[in-house]
Design a protein around this nucleic acid. Structure first.
Lengths: 311, 311
DNA sequence: CTTTGCAAG
DNA sequence: CTTGTAAAG
């Protein structure tokens, strides 16, 4: 049966669990069975070589690790990822080594950027099971690299960028910097890299692209993250340049949020926004097995998102 | 039997509870039976007209009221006081009314001072069952009244001052202000009032007077609160002017602390200081039934202190 | 070690 | 509402 735009079929002829057709890939690719409890896609065949990437705005890594309810090792075991990308770690450079050591066994390769201009602000990281060929911190433009917003690693088949796009802020006081400086600089950097290898950008891009990506579009037209200016910048700097919004490509009609503000208890009422993305070069987008959201993982005002890539 | 300087006798011929002679008044006044669990003095005879005053540095009143373990009403019922004096409320003027309303039924008279120079800093209050004849906020010297450190109320038989003496601070950077400005100004103000009625000053006077009043005298000779300068100022400005340290008068040899720093888990190990006092004009000091400490009341780095005054 | 206010999201 | 800072004790 269908509920609004979502097809909901309880299937009983799948193996262990009552998989439910809850979401779908774009029409020509057919429907996809999701576990309705966890909203995870069905497991990819073990014989298919693949990589599993998770990205998460953790809103303060130290606070997250302090939570009784959260264990990084449990998350790693349950999700069985190869690479974990973090945003808003809010770490200072001096705290990174202690955190790195305590974090995840088996993930010996981790690359951290911290804000040096405002301590305890922003901060991104890529934590990987596989050792990358190269690493770059920031855009390589000192004007935009003091806030620890970007880290890039190079794998065999693609560049992976973990980014935290500047929030336009209360009163939209940073909107202009965001759309005239940051977004174009990041876009140019991605296009430069793309001449060498496909590029995947993940992270908190601080923009809900379309009305489907936010719970109350009408009421948020002048809210940071849903202004016309930011949505237009997202379109022209990233999508029009050939980077594919993999979640939307896989699930054209699915309402899927990745952020729920603390301020109005939004997670309970699902008053959310989709701010976190995996954008992929067209040349690698057809290797996406699925792009999905992990809405049951708590501990931050964002949920993690996942990407499974066939190699 | 005696343990060090303290006489400890378990008495079985007192009424309900196994009162223990744990402390004593000064020799000519004889020993006093204390409840060894609570360290409270024996109840005063109901036929004796008296007033019970409690003073407490609460180290942030809003945090205290948030604690599950603490209820202001319970404290009021258990201790059955007439007047409660608070220091370090850390309230802002704008928050006082909400707190006042929520605080204590039956205590309709409350008088609050807040720091206007540093928000959320210092702050004192007197909360009373009895309506006082007059109230004064501060010393009446605008140079020293911006930090909400003093409130005075006038009762029938005495003036009650609730004060929070400036901490000399890390590096003793405020020691000079404290001993050359604040202490003499407060002392002069008390002597002025005393021409009209006896004076009782209570609060966090931020000075451990003698070696008996601090757990590690040798190691704290240059620590704020135990410098020779502060101890000398305490002696000359208050004791030598005829104000009696009522706890020490009642209990000449008792080690009794009222403050244990959070920094070294001092409360568990009793690494404490006696910083909180009831000082009383000589003319009213003989009406003191007892001056005592309430070491079992948690919720702050200070414990409350009590004074029972015969009228 | 803990409180407060503040900036930021 | 929650994170992080800083000043203060």
């Amino acid at each position: 049966h269908t509920t609004g735009k979502q097809l909901v079929i309880t299937s009983t002829d799948m193996k262990d669990e009552p998989w439910t057709i809850l979401t779908h890939k774009k029409p020509q690719k057919g429907w996809m069975a999701y576990n309705p409890k966890t909203m995870r896609p069905p497991p990819i065949a073990a014989a298919t070589a693949h990589m599993k990437l998770i990205s998460w705005n953790v809103n303060g890594l130290r606070a997250l690790l302090k939570l009784e309810s959260f264990s990084a090792m449990q998350l790693a075991q349950r999700e069985n990822f190869d690479v974990l990308c973090l945003q808003e770690t809010k770490l200072q450079e001096k705290d990174v080594d202690a955190i790195r050591l305590s974090l995840l066994e088996g993930f010996d390769n981790s690359y951290w950027t911290c804000s040096v201009s405002k301590l305890g602000y922003s901060g991104t990281a890529i934590i990987s099971r596989i050792k990358p060929h190269s690493v770059r911190y920031g855009l390589g433009l000192s004007d935009h690299d003091s806030e620890g917003r970007l880290v890039t690693v190079e794998f065999d088949n693609f560049y992976l960028l973990c980014g935290y796009v500047p929030n336009s802020g209360d009163g939209l006081k940073r909107l202009s910097y965001r759309i005239t400086q940051w977004d174009p600089s990041l876009s140019n950097y991605m296009k430069d890299l793309e001449r060498l290898k496909p590029v995947i950008l993940t992270g908190d891009l601080n923009c809900a692209h379309q009305e489907i990506d936010i719970w109350n579009p009408a009421g948020n037209k002048r809210s940071a993250g849903f202004t016309d200016e930011e949505r237009h910048s997202f379109q022209t700097n990233f999508l029009d340049k050939g980077f594919v919004d993999t979640f939307r490509e896989q699930h054209p009609d699915t309402v899927g949020y990745t952020y729920w503000g603390y301020r109005h208890g939004g997670r309970k009422t699902n008053k959310g926004w989709r701010l976190d993305y995996f954008l992929a070069s067209e040349s690698i987008a057809d290797q996406v097995y699925d792009s999905y959201i992990l809405p049951d993982v708590a501990g931050s005002d964002h949920s993690p998102i996942g990407l499974i890539l066939k190699l």
